[in-house]
Simulated assay, not measured.
Amino acid sequence: MRVLHAVRSDGFAGVERHVARLARAQAEQGDQVVVVGGDAAPMARTLGAAPVRLVPGATTRAVVLALLRFGPEADVVHVHMTAAEVAATVAATLLPLVGAGRRRLAPVVATRHFARPRGTGRLGPVVAAVARRRVSAQIAISTYVADAVDGPSVVVRPGFESASTTFPRSDERDPVVLVAQRLEPEKRTDAALCAFHASGLAAQGWRLDVAGDGSERGALVDLAEELDVGTSVRFLGRLDDVDALMGRASVMLAPCPVEGLGLSVLEAMANGLPVVAADAGGHVELLGGIDDVLLNPPLDAAAAGRALAVLAHAPGRRDAIAAAARSRQEDRFSPSAQAIATDRVYRAALGST
């Protein structure tokens, strides 16, 4: 299968990591894969030795031009997020006028990463109509997302494979709670700071490491000082690879109440790191049933703080959770399973055109 992925981006956050990991799994299974968009350096590191071609796609225009160039050779065009969907519609309109060889765009498959309908603001309905026009099939990264987006979706959950087959025991880890996410309002990193404060762990020598950056960083630094935990909180900025942090931390905190799935949570599961998370969104699909302490009412800092304190003082329980979570990740959320399920969607889309 010749697959062309497209995302309008020059960054490397959750969606770009998703694209790179899927492209790598597809290439390793024999597909010919081109990826348009994403920050080239971390994309290349994630792809490793997989023979995937990377093409810049920082703007919608750049994505359109890439689709015009590479689209006619693809069997499937797989777009991620609304801007890339719009680019596919524009490219499909222009291709009969400027394209050589095959003059139509391949069937378009869209992955929905966020639990909301297409389009926002005054022009939202128009943008949504343009975006969905060329989409032949739609993938949702979780049941939570599928229930929230417009149009029918096939649920294909992301896969992740840790670089290590073993992970440190609890007594070998640092007394650190880790948060790994963008510092934007919807992620509610403020709730993580409040939960760490409520846990009382700062007074016991524990530290909160915050990996990520965004518009709220300054306000969060101020909040840490207001909560009197500033000396126990490290803001590490944006990191392309947090596996090393996950291998040393003792607990991860995931406060976002609207997470489509939670790729950082999935990474933590693969790294044997217990996660205290908001009992909402895709977190439920990842962590539900492993241990009652893991999921807590969304934005309830006191409850999340109590869960952190319980796990901090129960290393044996952390080890049991880590083993159960790792087993679930390997069984249900592997890159090969994701690639196989995605291929089924592609073939259904090809059969319907």
Rank of each mutant, 00 (worst) to 15 (best):
L4V: 01
L4E: 04
S9H: 04
F12S: 04
A13R: 13
A13V: 14
R24P: 00
A25R: 03
A25Y: 03
Q26H: 08
Q26S: 03
G30K: 07
G30I: 11
M43Q: 07
M43A: 09
R45C: 02
L47N: 03
G48Y: 13
G48F: 13
A50P: 03
V55I: 11
A58R: 01
V63G: 00
L67F: 06
P72A: 08
E73V: 10
V76W: 00
V79F: 02
H80N: 09
A83C: 06
E85K: 08
V86D: 01
T89L: 12
V90C: 00
A91M: 04
T93H: 14
L97C: 05
R102K: 07
L105D: 06
A106C: 09
A110N: 07
T111D: 01
R112C: 04
H113P: 06
R118Q: 15
R122A: 15
P125H: 15
V126Q: 02
V126I: 15
A131R: 05
A131Q: 05
R132L: 10
I139A: 00
S142T: 10
S142L: 12
Y144L: 01
Y144A: 10
D147H: 09
D147M: 01
A148L: 06
P152A: 15
S153Y: 04
S153C: 07
S153L: 02
V154N: 11
R157A: 13
R157W: 07
R157K: 14
P158G: 11
P158E: 05
A163F: 11
S164W: 08
S164D: 13
P168K: 08
R169D: 11
D171S: 15
E172W: 14
R173W: 07
D174M: 13
V176N: 10
K187G: 05
A192I: 08
A192M: 03
A195H: 01
A198R: 00
S199T: 11
A202Y: 07
A203Q: 09
Q204K: 13
V210M: 03
G212S: 02
E216D: 15
E216K: 12
G218H: 01
T231I: 04
S232C: 11
V233W: 03
D243C: 09
M246G: 01
L253Q: 02
S264C: 10
A268T: 01
A270G: 13
G272D: 07
A277S: 00
D279F: 05
H283T: 03
L287H: 03
G288Q: 12
G289M: 09
D291H: 13
D292T: 10
D292A: 14
V293D: 02
N296I: 06
L299S: 05
D300G: 01
A302L: 14
G305S: 06
R306M: 07
A307D: 02
A307M: 03
L308M: 08
V310D: 10
L311E: 14
A312T: 15
H313R: 09
G316M: 14
R318V: 09
I321Y: 13
A324H: 11
A324G: 10
A325V: 13
S327P: 08
R328C: 13
E330Q: 15
D331S: 15
S336N: 15
A339H: 01
A339M: 02
T342N: 00
R344L: 08
Y346I: 02
Y346A: 06
A348Q: 13
